[in-house]
Design a protein around this nucleic acid. Sequence first.
DNA 1: CCCGATCTATATCGGACCAATATAGACGGA
DNA 2: TCCGTCTATATTGGTCCGATATAGATCGGG
Lengths: 176, 176
Amino acid sequence: MDVRTICLGILSRGEATGYEIKKLFDDDGYQHFVEASFGSIYPALSRLTQEGLVSVRAESQEKRPDRKVYSITDAGRKAFLASLMKPLPEDRHRSPFVFAMLFSHLLPQPRVVEMLHTYIEQSETKLAQLMEPRPQPQSEGERFVLGYGRAVYIAIVNYLRQYRAEMKGNAAEAAE
Amino acid sequence: MDVRTICLGILSRGEATGYEIKKLFDDDGYQHFVEASFGSIYPALSRLTQEGLVSVRAESQEKRPDRKVYSITDAGRKAFLASLMKPLPEDRHRSPFVFAMLFSHLLPQPRVVEMLHTYIEQSETKLAQLMEPRPQPQSEGERFVLGYGRAVYIAIVNYLRQYRAEMKGNAAEAAE
DNA sequence: CCCGATCTATATCGGACCAATATAGACGGA
DNA sequence: TCCGTCTATATTGGTCCGATATAGATCGGG
């Protein structure tokens, strides 16, 4: 699942600029499980255009650089569907936080508490975003992905909160 | 959290060859949240050696290429701890399956069922691995990471099973 | 009312990283 | 005996990310 395919998918739901595609990953609550950087999105869009899988319409604005709005072509739709019919690549996940926690016994306790705190806050923010009420018209896929994200982040937040509570309990015990 | 840091972390728990480091990510139930490829591990180990953060002991074996066993040095331990004290990079996660499911309404139903099936099986396998009883002596960090992995995969498997069950229910309803 | 911050928007570059592939002896099972 | 799998190191092509540059718009606070 390379960035080109991801871009095709996004564009199959409506035209967008490179910037807007990137924003979808940052703000919008759906895509907690795919992201891409400018450094890969812009080259991907150029190449897709060359290959005729997307088309560009340059909205020239007064006193601004052109706004390049990309749309998917019929060939693009076909190519996208074809890639969804092939075996999907495996998930890739790298969590520096979880890795770091493996070594909590080597770290000063305040640092561990801090890491936990930061990560809990991040996860709570993401969960809150996913819990926001959505506008009505959702596709089945959107419903699935939203539910999936909620389930995962609820599990994470619960586990982390519980773990932190146990830590505090143990610290109190040790202080007695 | 680059591969060099990950290698340092692994080596802080005991010496290993490049091959063994890679295996930890594949087999061992801990590291569901970090992985690295040979193409990044071997160069990382070379550079770490040059920088004096790890040392190599070449076990020359009869009729085989040397087995290069890497150990972390004191400088390496210091560098590793220092990197854990700095703000951690954010998680990165890309799930082609979840992304593909966003477009389930565009796909033939058998394909959707197949994707779900495959992903459920994969997740169940990983969960089963995480549920295997562990040898006693675990660090606090190991306990945390194991619990985290279990919590996440239980949530995923539950959600997917429930979703599949609902799908079947709807299909039966539609057939009436 | 002006200044700084933030936002929209495109683009590039160096470096990090992965997937695939090459090599090669050992070992176990059919 | 032959095939597949395992241990083990290593390289390469290509993908991708993070940082950075540019630049006008917009907006809130002082």
